[in-house]
Design a protein around this nucleic acid. Structure first.
Lengths: 223, 223
DNA sequence: AGTTTGCGATACGGGTCCGTCTCGTATCGA
DNA sequence: TCGATACGAGACGGACCCGTATCGCAAACT
């Protein structure tokens, strides 16, 4: 007899932690505090430098002061949990503030500089590179949630710069994006010991890239 | 009774695979073929996309057609083996060929482009970032063996460029290096789907960075 | 009340891994 | 020939892990 008496019209068994809309759930409701503790524990473990393969469910449960079953009641497996953690991570993208293109570029680069200073983001940035290689689902979540919007933001600014005649129009837009954000990503992601403290770094980088690092005052600009 | 009768004056028990100089070793000598098979197996596993945590000694031994003891006879643990693999990996750095600074920069960037196309290097580049984070010994070996000489090469070229008046002298040398190699590293390391096939890519990148991506023909060059 | 579900804790089976050890065999120096 | 060492294969203990199941108890609904 599986006639779905009054509730349970929610969706198989995968309601996830964002399903408090669909059914009042007959018994004791799930603890919101436990959920937050789990997320906080994962982020703490990230900040403490644990690598992706060191994030075991048992360790997370212990760090959160939570039973393993409480985790498996919410997510079907470890991957699903981490995918959701990634999806939650750092959404606030800087929205455009109608300044000049140069100002927008500086703002974007400076946002990435500050992000590189935060350990949580740094962990994600770095883990995104190797371990996720072997973990397509997590990698896709990260690409979709984090990388894609940022690349689109960069592309939009660059396109606007080309339209306004501030950026060269004879170059591939992708190439220009890479030239602008490559240096800051290099510092914030690839090189550990590189300093990110200078608040003028973003400005210096953008100006250097805009003006070029070549010395000849009127050299090959015509191409 | 540990009087070291005739041999064994080699150094505790850690002779490593580069110790055939010190003592003729009384019994059967170690198999050079086994050693090569082990290295080859690790590199094959890398190329096949295995992540760092998937490189277990048992898997390596199986792939090499070798007993586990043969590995542990040479290296005290898994880390030591991988450290040596890293140290062996991709030494051939392009030596300077007295061209112009621009040509040297293009050569260096193009070298990195080609390196990004090779799966083995790519694996190392990517694994160097997250897993090595939690594995200081391996990370240091990679920094010392691979990263450091390349950064020094870049610095040397840039300094020469500044001396010859081809590169701006009002910028930090480190910053110029990052601006030049940031874009190609971004493509070859961070972004998987980005194309690296175009043989003119390096030239485009270097020229764009030298001339600047800003459009104003004589704008802020004076700073 | 009674029911239903969630909670933390913990035990469990099945798996992988590390590093050591033991086989029987092969290959070297003395 | 003989002792010493290497070899491939694999067993072993201990550790960790995953995902499930079972406790006794708590918190909601009917």
């Amino acid at each position: 007899m599986h006639t779905e008496p009054t509730v349970s019209a929610c969706g198989a068994d995968e309601d996830g932690p964002a399903a408090e809309l669909c059914a009042p759930r007959r018994g004791r409701p799930r603890s919101e505090a436990a959920e937050q503790a789990i997320f906080a524990a994962v982020e703490d473990l990230m900040e403490s430098g644990k690598s992706l393969s060191e994030l075991s469910v048992e360790r997370i449960a212990a760090a959160a002061g939570v039973g393993k079953a409480t985790i498996y009641r919410r997510w079907p497996n470890k991957e699903a949990l981490l995918v959701e953690v990634v999806a939650r991570l750092e959404s606030p993208l800087p929205e455009p503030s109608g300044g000049t293109v140069r100002e927008e570029l500086v703002r974007m680069v400076d946002y990435m500089r500050k992000r590189g200073l935060a350990k949580r983001s740094r962990w994600m940035l770095k883990s995104a590179l190797s371990q996720m290689n072997a973990w397509p689902e997590l990698r896709e979540a990260y690409q979709e949630q984090v990388v894609k919007p940022r690349r689109e933001l960069a592309r939009a600014i660059v396109r606007r710069g080309v339209d306004e005649g501030v950026l060269r129009s004879d170059l591939d837009v992708e190439l220009v994006c890479e030239i602008i954000i490559g240096p800051i990503l290099l510092r914030s992601v690839l090189w550990d010991e590189a300093p990110l403290d200078d608040p003028d770094l973003a400005e210096q980088m953008v100006d250097a890239v805009l003006n070029g690092v070549g010395a000849q005052p009127s050299g090959g600009r015509s191409r």
